[in-house]
Nucleic acid binder design. Sequence first.
DNA 1: CCTCCACTGGAAACTGCGGCAT
DNA 2: ATGCCGCAGTTTCCAGTGGAGG
Length: 398
Amino acid sequence: MSDIIDEVISSFKVSNIFINRDYLMPDYIPEELPHREDQIRKIAGILAPLYRGERPNNIFIYGLTGTGKTAVSKFVLSNLYKKFPNKFKYVYVNTRQTDTPYRVLADLLEALGVKVPFTGLSIAELYRRLVKAIKEYSLQVVIVLDEIDAFVKKYNDDILYRLSRINSEISKGKVSFIGITNDVKFVDSLDPRVKSSLSEEEIVFPPYNAEELEDILRKRAQMALKPGVLSDSVIRLCAALAAREHGDARRALDLLRVSAEIAERLRDSTVKEEYVYMAKDEIERDRVRDIILTLPFHSKLVLAAIVAKLLEEKNAVLTTGNVYEAYLSISKKLGIEAITQRRVSDILNELDMVGLLTARVVNRGRYGKTKEISLAVDKNIIIKTLTESDNRFADLWG
DNA sequence: CCTCCACTGGAAACTGCGGCAT
DNA sequence: ATGCCGCAGTTTCCAGTGGAGG
């Protein structure tokens, strides 16, 4: 009995591909960040006043996904902190994960050593406590707000406005902000007061080109993978595929990692080029799966309605009204109370946003204005995942 | 040039839940 | 015990809107 388990464990432990898979994980921050030297120098320069206990300027960082914004920010801060831990304190908040005003403030307080209930208080109360905490705190505080564009889009710039005013509520300036955003146009949509206060310094992260991506991959692969499992052509392929999508380093690393995982799963001793293509599909499938599984119930229902409509009528032109009809018939079939068309219209926009479908607004003259909707992913994956997530969907299709 | 379709998308408010302060 | 809070998903109401067909 136990030798079976030993066997399983040892085959799991002894990898013929990986030395340490962690070096290819998206949240790993390496010792060096190739091709980001300029940005590191600039940010470190702006933050240098921390050393004299003075308040650095606020920074706004722009760049597309996977251009190293988060990694560089964390890298500079943690290295500065290692050099003089008694001069300042920094807090990192990803506002996509921590995605409500309450939780953002609660996280900031937590990091300053103030524990707050995870619900129940008013936002105003949290601000009060935050200002008090900062006032009483003896050091400079640097607050990193990652992906604030998404946050501000869903709520508004109220938090930013109030946060940016904290310094004026305290006699002496003690808080600096680093705002990180994927959306270059985002800053223009801000309240001018917030804008001028928060973007005292601006830093742009350009996308990596294919050569730079290769370089990054090569360095990571050296640490993560055993020598000889990876050929140059595989690295070039991963880099090229990622470069095609605006030079996204995270995507490149994901491709490489998953390709290597496939090689391991197949008990191969080298990563073949075909595994990279398999990895690409697998990443896409997992992404779609994760999105669908976390969808609210009625969003799933809307998705099911679209697929059902497409199954019964191959070349159906899908419009909002159209989809709503299909939605009504499905919810009736399942005995579920239907939501309004207004809400379904928003759900369609949401499904568009997460990339499951494309909904573009068209004007069809005499025949009105509506959204034309088409699926952006393979409908078999949708059917499979919907059925898996809730067996009520099972008998909607043959 | 005007009409009028089939919606769009903004705004406000509601519901129901979990949970705090007092 | 009471009342107020945040939040997600939703309803209700409604003032637009671009262009095919007259």
